[in-house]
């Protein structure tokens, strides 16, 4: 700690006046609700303190949502990050092409899942262009079923999740000093060796963060599970269970419990990924960044 920090916080020319409003606001509307929700989840309308959690893990209608959500979000995240990494590496040099691709990919992220869902219903629907095109080429003759099922939600998560994973990965890839790879190239390293021995170790922390953020986003899928999925069964995700508890049964205690389980499940995966990253890669972290 520096000497500045040792002084009373009120003497540093009103630092707390600057940062205070933001801190107070987030304490009131972010931290407090979390704490309150945690407390509320252990105070069910009836039954013992753990009644909500017992109910969640014994009622198939509820615990299945956790499995469904994992089944959706884990493969999709692996796919999105797995595709994002090689493509971002391919586009690591600043070109006009890179600028165009990034600009185009920002659009689906900005538009959001609700618009993507409506676009999917129009485009991927049984009478949409994709279906017509496949029939024209005689690839698939019946009306295709890509919406209102599990596939629909997977597609929607790829459409919104891949650009996100790509842009994040690209920002990490372009943050690595290209002279390192050039130095390796002069020693005879081809693109694969450059990737394997220079980029991948330096990218590991960024990739772990990208994976976590992409996963957490996919795990909290909500509008598309309803609009292009089958919300009564195959794509009844956990956020839907929380929403129904809160706004259809008005059981805020149960809804809070489901939200806590959702947050905890995300936390477990994040901790696992970050732990795995630490276990796999030993060496200086963050070197090579300017």
């Amino acid at each position: 700690m520096s000497a500045m920090a040792a002084r009373s916080p009120f003497r540093t020319d009103g630092t707390w006046l600057l940062v205070g409003p933001a801190v107070i606001f987030l304490m009131l509307f972010f931290i407090y609700p979390f704490g309150y929700g945690f407390w509320l989840s252990f105070n069910p309308a009836e039954g013992a303190w753990s009644a909500n959690y017992q109910k969640f893990f014994s009622d198939e209608h509820l615990w299945r949502t956790l499995i469904v959500t994992f089944q959706l979000s884990l493969p999709v995240t692996i796919l999105n990050v797995g595709l994002a990494l090689p493509i971002a590496f391919q586009l690591r040099r600043k070109t006009r092409y890179q600028r165009w691709v990034t600009t185009l990919l920002v659009i689906p992220i900005t538009l959001g899942t609700v618009l993507i869902a409506e676009g999917m219903l129009t485009y991927f629907g049984p009478r949409g262009w994709l279906s017509q095109f496949l029939q024209l080429l005689h690839i698939y003759d019946g009306p295709i079923r890509l919406t209102h099922n599990f596939t629909g939600v997977v597609l929607s998560l790829v459409i919104s999740g891949f650009p996100f994973a790509f842009l994040l990965t690209l920002s990490y890839v372009t943050g690595i000093d290209p002279t390192l790879a050039r130095a390796a190239a002069t020693l005879g390293a081809g693109p694969w060796d450059q990737f394997r021995h220079i980029y991948l170790p330096l990218l590991a922390p960024g990739l772990a963060i990208t994976f976590c953020l992409a996963f957490v986003q996919a795990f909290s899928v909500f509008p598309s599970a309803v609009l292009v999925g089958a919300p009564s069964g195959p794509t009844r995700v956990i956020s839907l269970a929380a929403y129904e508890a809160a706004f259809e049964q008005y059981d805020y205690s149960m809804a809070s419990a489901v939200a806590m389980i959702m947050g905890f499940a995300q936390l477990i995966v994040v901790v696992a990924v970050l732990g795995l990253r630490r276990g796999l890669y030993r060496g200086p972290v963050g070197g090579g960044k300017g």
Binding site: V19, F29, P33, S220, M262
Partner: peptide
């Protein structure tokens, strides 16, 4: 701690904190 407070709302998905927030 303040930094953490500012980062959390950006990495926790809205639907996760939205339900307790809406309750409050």
């Amino acid at each position: 701690l303040v930094m953490l407070l500012f980062i959390l709302p950006l990495i926790i998905p809205p639907i996760t904190y939205g339900i307790p927030m809406a309750t409050v």
